[in-house]
């Protein structure tokens, strides 16, 4: 009973928030609605007994990702309305057809895939965080390490791309400037 009420309430709220994100013309409205939707989604994780995932959702998405977007939006002109250009009817027809096909596939797949058994069953007698840790650091250790390397690469890429006080930034210069910089470097070497 309680679960049903919570599910329908949060389902409604999440759908409304994400619809606002997708359909609004104001970038700031989209950002705040997205952050609210992320927090509402963590409620589903708590309902599903995935407490650790819910906490990670709040910390990473609303804490880190949304803060990053908020900082990024300082660079852009967010006060004016977002301009949207119209697309041709053929493209809209094609894309909506693809969405319909995708939804049919998504609904059919659980019916097709019967007889699913758990590879790593939920460990009895321990909390969710402990069970997650036990599986993550035994069965999924290599993907975990690879994800760590990927996050490091992303961090370095973010610093290099958005950092200001680099020696010089290839991505910001015009083609002639890049050529000049290379020539001066060659002169310095020879």
């Amino acid at each position: 009973m309680f679960e049903a009420i919570a599910f329908y309430l949060f389902a409604f709220l999440t759908i409304v928030m994400f619809s606002v994100t997708v359909f609004t013309k104001q970038a700031l409205y989209a950002l705040t609605a997205l952050a609210a939707g992320m927090i509402f989604i963590s409620a589903f994780y708590f309902l599903l007994g995935a407490d650790f995932l819910g906490a990670v959702q709040i910390i990473v998405y609303t804490g880190a990702v949304m803060a990053l977007y908020a900082f990024g939006m300082m660079f852009f002109d967010t006060t004016r309305n977002v301009k949207e250009y119209g697309r041709s009817p053929q493209i809209i027809f094609l894309l909506s057809g693809m969405i319909a096909l995708l939804i049919v596939i998504i609904f059919v797949v659980p019916i097709v895939s019967e007889n699913i058994t758990a590879i790593y069953p939920v460990i009895e007698g321990v909390g969710n965080s402990q069970a997650v840790g036990m599986v993550l650091f035994t069965k999924y250790l290599i993907p975990f390490e690879v994800a760590a390397v990927m996050l490091l690469v992303a961090m370095i890429a973010g610093i290099v791309l958005a950092g200001k006080k680099m020696d010089y930034s290839l991505t910001l210069m015009e083609d002639e400037e890049i050529k000049l910089a290379e020539e001066s470097k060659e002169k310095a070497l020879s």
């Binding site: 990702v65 990024g72 996050l151």
Partner: peptide
Amino acid sequence: GDLTGQMFAFFVIAIAASEVAVGLGLLII
């Protein structure tokens, strides 16, 4: 009753975080 789904969700979150970092940097440039 399987923890694999939660594992995949964690990795998806990690990928989303790194996607934002790189993508926003490119967008600023």
